[in-house]
Design a protein around this nucleic acid. Structure first.
Ligand code: ZN
Ligand code: ZN
Length: 605
DNA sequence: GCTCAAGGCCAG
DNA sequence: CTGGCCTTGAGC
């Protein structure tokens, strides 16, 4: 490599702390570690990452920029349309858009210390650690085909340079990492806070910064999406369309009046002293949606039409205890800017480049590993607190489903679908996706056979995987064995996920032209994945054992879902909101009946 | 003790 | 204002 001398991670130098080997990161025992972010690109500008800063892996300059901005409470404004591209070469040009992107990518204002205390560690440490562990692990996954690892991040393959419009998303294609960071963190921290709830006594009092800080920010963000009519999923999806609540606030939003500076500036989250222990709402089940205003029905095509959309009407869910201090959310929820959406999957997805690359690229760019990483963290967290296996499963499922949705809505292809399609697809496929994720995690030994719970109890991994059922354990184990025999790997897993998610059969019977169009888009994508996968496997879709297995998994998911539905009817534990809604979709009841009757003598009314 | 993210410094 | 390099210090 030509740039060898720059390859030492910056931020480390010999002069520090009498460390005997200042260059330990490059060689020796720690060599592996350095590799973990040596290849990473800053999710904000694409420059070389120097470590975790304010919540995620970023470069040194974005770190500095972010720090200065937050410390000095700077208010930038954009001379253009708030969608300036931000990359290494032009990041200086528009600080407004740069900062916006920082936030959007998940940098945390609350990690900037108000008291300016140096050194030490903060609460994000655990997240960094978990994230690092995962990245590392995933580096070691064998790739399978001739391609070598070097290509993993070379996603330059992927893009034509179309749109700079929507927050530069497209032009960022070269950034390999962390479009997921934010979602990931949210999920991560949510769990922590939720745990606090369940243990949590002390918390409420000792958090000086709580009232307007970090926490409420993230709670808002996290729960903002819930909707009044029980449409959590829709809300979760639509909320995300323009990303982060924190940002739409510097001055003129979409040409609206500029004088208004909501009290809840981003900086309010800047937290005082270090151990900012955030507390959580004193409810241990996910918040319900009573505090929402009615949602004017229009989220279906929401993201196409900025003015028609009623993001501003969506009042985020804030736990009642802290709800007092914010009505400022509406400002947050304004869409950042319209998203052009003639783009169909087809155009979004690149069209040239060899088929088998598609999965490679998807696998890398879609950050499936990160999603799974958070599943692992979720499990770890809940398992230490809960002792009842079913309750444990419910909570894990609820949380991971949130993560699933966050993941999906950020996924480059999925997010281009009409909202309506997104809803249907997720409604349709969540249980299968769950099973695939957990099964793959199991195969990767991210979970062992059983999961140790509190009070010395345990939960079979198969139970958790199968949505809390233990009836199908053998069937699942058999599937696992077969997957293993076929050397099911990361690429196969990626194919499984995408083939499942993009299930065009949801429109099998539809006749409206709109739906047919949707169906076609999804189908095209689906078949492209299928071809790529077959190509990768040197096989034909018609004769792929792994494809048969996927069908089996889908069947299994269906059964498991029915079972879960049944169990939820009679459980003593509260069924979390989102899960409940996913289970109780009206159109499913018939299906539950038909699936259940052959297996068991379950009788519905 | 060592780590490594956070703050500080300052030439450009 | 930027960003590369330097110092700190809680937590492991
Ligand atoms: Zn950067
Ligand atoms: Zn700009």
């Amino acid at each position: 490599m030509a740039i060898v001398d720059h390859s030492m991670p910056i931020g480390h130098h010999q002069s520090t702390a009498a460390s005997t080997n200042g260059h330990s990161l490059l060689n020796g025992q720690n060599g592996i570690r350095s590799a973990s972010f040596e290849t990473e690109k800053c999710p904000v500008c694409g420059d070389r990452v120097s470590g975790y800063h304010y919540g995620l892996l970023t470069c040194e300059s974005c770190k500095g920029f972010f720090k200065r901005t937050v410390q000095n409470k700077k208010q930038y404004s954009c001379a253009a349309e708030q969608n300036c591209p931000v990359d290494k070469t032009c990041r200086k040009r528009c600080p407004h858009c740069r900062f916006q992107k920082c936030i959007q990518r998940g940098m945390k204002v609350e990690a900037v210390r108000e008291d300016r205390m140096r050194g030490g560690r903060n609460k994000f440490g655990t997240f960094y650690k978990a994230d690092r562990a995962l990245r590392q692990k995933n580096l070691k996954i064998p790739i399978g085909v001739s391609q070598n690892g070097a290509n993993l991040n070379g996603s330059s393959v992927i893009h034509t340079s179309n749109g700079t419009y929507y927050n530069g998303q497209v032009s960022e294609a070269h950034v390999s990492s962390s479009t997921q960071d934010q979602a990931a963190q949210l999920a991560y921290f949510e769990q922590h806070n939720r745990l606090k709830v369940s243990n949590g006594y002390e918390t409420l009092l000792q958090s000086p910064a709580v009232s307007n800080s970090a926490f409420s920010e993230f709670v808002m963000q996290r729960h903002a999406p819930y909707m009044p009519n029980g449409d959590s999923l829709a809300a979760l999806l639509s909320h995300s369309m323009s990303d982060d609540p924190l940002l739409h606030r510097s001055g003129l939003v979409n040409g609206m009046s500029s004088g208004f500076h909501p009290p809840a500036s981003v900086y309010s989250a800047c937290v005082k002293p270090e151990p900012f222990d955030v507390y959580i709402a004193p409810s241990d089940t996910p918040v319900t949606s009573e505090s929402y205003l009615a949602q004017p029905t229009n989220y279906i095509n929401g993201f196409c039409n900025p003015s028609a959309v009623s993001y501003a009407d969506m009042v985020p869910m804030v736990p009642s205890t802290i709800a007092g201090n914010d009505n400022r959310l509406s400002a947050h929820l304004l869409p950042v800017c319209p998203i052009p959406t003639e783009k169909s999957i087809d155009t979004v997805f690149y069209s040239g480049s060899t088929p088998s690359n598609i999965l490679e690229v998807l696998s890398t760019r879609s950050q499936l590993e990160t999603k799974r990483a958070h599943n692992v963290v979720t499990v770890a967290n809940f398992s230490s607190t809960f002792s009842d296996p079913f309750q444990f499963c419910l909570l894990v499922m609820e949380t991971t489903m949130n993560q699933q949705i966050s993941w999906a809505r950020n996924e480059e292809n999925f997010r281009e679908l009409r909202m309506d399609d997104q809803l249907r697809l997720l409604n349709r496929t969540w249980s299968t996706l769950h099973i695939i994720d957990f099964t793959y995690s199991f195969l990767m030994r991210e979970f062992s056979y059983t999961i140790q719970l509190a009070n010395n109890r345990e939960c079979l991994t198969s139970t958790l995987t199968l949505l809390g059922s233990d009836e199908f354990q053998e069937e699942w184990e058999s599937i696992c064995n077969q997957l293993q025999q076929h050397q099911f790997n990361r690429i196969d897993y990626t194919a499984y996920i995408f083939l499942t998610l993009f299930d065009y059969s949801i429109y099998r019977d539809s006749s409206s032209t709109e739906e047919l169009q949707s169906r076609e888009g999804i189908e095209v994508f689906h078949s492209r994945i299928l071809r790529a996968w077959a190509d990768y496997r040197n096989s034909h879709p018609a004769s792929m054992p792994l494809l048969d297995l996927l069908q089996q998994i889908k069947q299994l998911a269906k059964k498991a879902q029915c079972n879960l539905y049944k169990k939820c009817q009679s459980t003593e534990f509260p069924v979390p909101q989102l899960l409940k809604e996913m289970l109780e979709q009206p159109n499913l009841s018939a299906e539950y009946k038909s699936v259940l009757s052959p297996i068991s003598s379950y009788t519905t009314s």
